[in-house]
Amino acid sequence: MNRFHLLHATEFIYDGPVYESYNEVRLRPIHDDRQSCLSFRLITSPASRGSSYKDGYGNWIHVTSILAPHRRLRIEAESVVLVHEAPVPEPGSMPLSGLDAVRADLLEEHFDWLAPSAYVPYLPEIAEISKTAEAGCDGTVAGFAETASDFIHNSFVYQKGATHVNSSVRDSLALRAGVCQDFAHLLLGVVRMRGLPARYVSGYIVSGSATAGTKQEEVIGGQASHAWAEVFLPGSGWIGFDPTLGKPIGLRHIRVAYGRDYGDVPPVRGVYKGRAGQSLSVDVRFRPALDDSGHEQIAEAKSESDHSGGSIPERPQQHSQQ
């Protein structure tokens, strides 16, 4: 069991005054039987009026509104999370050939997790990967998902900046490269096209230095914000796979939100009025909330105008009559 204190700060700097700014924030870690969100606090500067609700997928969404003109917006999410052991597939997993019999039922139960989506369309290239994974696996659904995840990990290059936040799997397929978002999307496509429900997980990976008592490990790309996929394996339930790391989901993966793809779960998304461009920086810090040895270690990951901030389209200012 790992316990983390998490500080996720998103800051927008505008090059002119903006007003009537609204944001949807998806930063509250999931609270369920595998992970406990012990506390959560969201602070904005300037101060905003807000509300929150749980969406149809069980994610917490906080909505902030700031009407008065401002040139800078900082959104700080602070939480304490307890991560339990991740579940592993039950032994004796269902054979892949058994999927056909339950195909219709799975579609009825899990339509959203099977249907093609904006970022994850069904493409022949994805079907190819699916075939390769099927040929190379042990013939079970669990083995297939794991092989698919490994295959993506080994065949695609993790390359920061290779794609952008609105890239669909088409881009990463063409480049054979991408970031965690793309790796997760690829895995979703591969397993969905084979008939297995799968969902996008937006979350964090805590670097080794922040986990007390464990050896320093490098987190790929130095990113704290992370994404992977969970696949529904009949008989076992939802099992996570991390095609970016190529390793099993462990005590350092913190889940924040589930979606059909990235489009459902950007950490911060919003609109504002005013003719001003913006620059974005995101800063995520972890520390073990309770360190037995009394040491406080801080892992820091900083990125600029990167994926983790979400896209903020500009709403053009309304014209006054002249």
Binding site: Y53, V63, S65, R269, G270, V271, P313, R315, P316
Partner: peptide, 17 residues
């Protein structure tokens, strides 16, 4: 535009909230 199409200029951001 916050909840549905973000390019909408006809709507009211925050209305669904």
């Amino acid at each position: 535009p916050l909840c549905f199409r973000s390019d909408s200029m006809l709507g009211v951001p925050g209305l669904m909230g």
